[in-house]
Design a protein around this nucleic acid. Structure first.
Length: 308
DNA sequence: TGCAGTGTTGCTTC
DNA sequence: CGAAGCAACACTGC
């Protein structure tokens, strides 16, 4: 479930593992001669793959960072590998061995790392380093994006210039939070929270959880939400996201950190995927409802989350 | 067995 | 311009 806390966890892992390493090559089984338009100039494009190899082979990783749900791996030649995990992507660090016959990478049995990770069978991109280790990108649904940023145009193209403020940034005050929203006063608050151009990094799980903590119904209109509740939403947003990071991300579905390990936030859910279960809010006797809002599944307590 | 449901985003259509 | 809906893909679980 790569949302802000999961991507943060992965990036922290990258800075502990591949920082300072030199890239020796990159492999993929996704590159096509004629990719659909959306995937041109990404790793799903054979022409791009040739160029990518030229640009990154021999380069050193200086560091990695997160922007919204994007992973940016900065290289010594000032170019940047951009990775988006989308629904089911993982980055796994370890030692892999190439099986030429099957044209796929398999974890080295002698390494303790991600051997038990069931997602190893979905490895579609492998970066090799000169120290003999690898960074594997596994992605069962193949929605993920791997590409290269070379100039401002590329930042624009991959939507990195159109991102809202980072919710955990110390400069993101309550005043700024309030100001960021009113462009779309009639949209349900849940949809607003997940809009990357308004606030960065929030997705389906954490938006459900923060609205529950703030006692706000996900279909509430922003302009009708009283100040008191909006303030509560602001602090719930920070609390829930920080908690997600503290618990190492959410592995209710298939998120794994860079060592192939699960996070624990799925055990802290109060609403997400808790349909028909009892509400955990103090003094509330309600039951969790599931409803599709803006074509996303939404979970909330009808009893204690107020609709404004 | 079959089909509904799944974290994200970007493109097309209206 | 914005909103809505679906496509990209493949698996899990009921």
């Amino acid at each position: 479930m790569p949302e802000l806390p999961e991507v943060t966890t992965t990036v922290t892992g990258l800075n502990k593992t591949i920082k300072g390493l030199t890239i020796s090559s990159v492999w993929t089984d996704l590159a096509k001669d004629k990719p659909i338009k959306q995937f041109e100039n990404t790793i799903k494009d054979k022409k791009f793959l040739i160029k990518l190899k030229k640009e990154i082979n021999g380069q050193k990783v200086t560091n990695s960072e997160r922007k919204a749900k994007n992973i940016l791996i900065n290289l010594s030649n000032k170019k940047v590998i951009l990775i988006h995990l989308k629904m089911t992507g993982h980055l796994l660090y370890g030692k892999y061995i190439y099986n030429k016959k099957e044209d796929r990478w398999i974890p080295d049995k002698n390494e303790k790392n991600s051997l038990k990770d069931p997602y190893n069978r979905f490895v579609h991109v492998v970066f090799s380093f000169t120290n003999g280790k690898h960074l594997a990108f596994s992605d069962s649904r193949k929605f993920g994006k791997v590409t290269l940023l070379e100039n401002d145009k590329h930042f624009e193209k991959h939507n990195l210039n159109n991102l809202g403020p980072e919710p955990l940034d110390k400069n993101f005050t309550y005043t700024k939070f309030k100001k960021a929203i009113p462009r779309f006063p009639l949209k349900p608050i849940k949809i607003i929270l997940m809009d990357q151009s308004i606030i960065s990094g929030i997705g389906n799980i954490y938006s459900d959880e923060m609205l529950h903590m703030a006692h706000i119904h996900p279909e509430s209109n922003f302009k009708n939400i009283p100040e008191k509740y909006l303030k509560r939403l602001y602090s719930s947003m920070k609390r829930v996201l920080k908690s997600g990071i503290d618990f190492g991300g959410d592995s209710m579905s298939d998120y794994r950190n860079i060592y192939g390990e699960k996070g624990n936030f799925q055990n802290k859910h109060n609403v997400y995927q808790r349909k028909n279960q009892k509400c955990n809010n103090k003094n509330c006797k309600g039951v969790i409802t599931r409803k599709t809002i803006g074509s996303r599944s939404s979970h909330f307590c009808d009893t204690c989350q107020e609709l404004f």
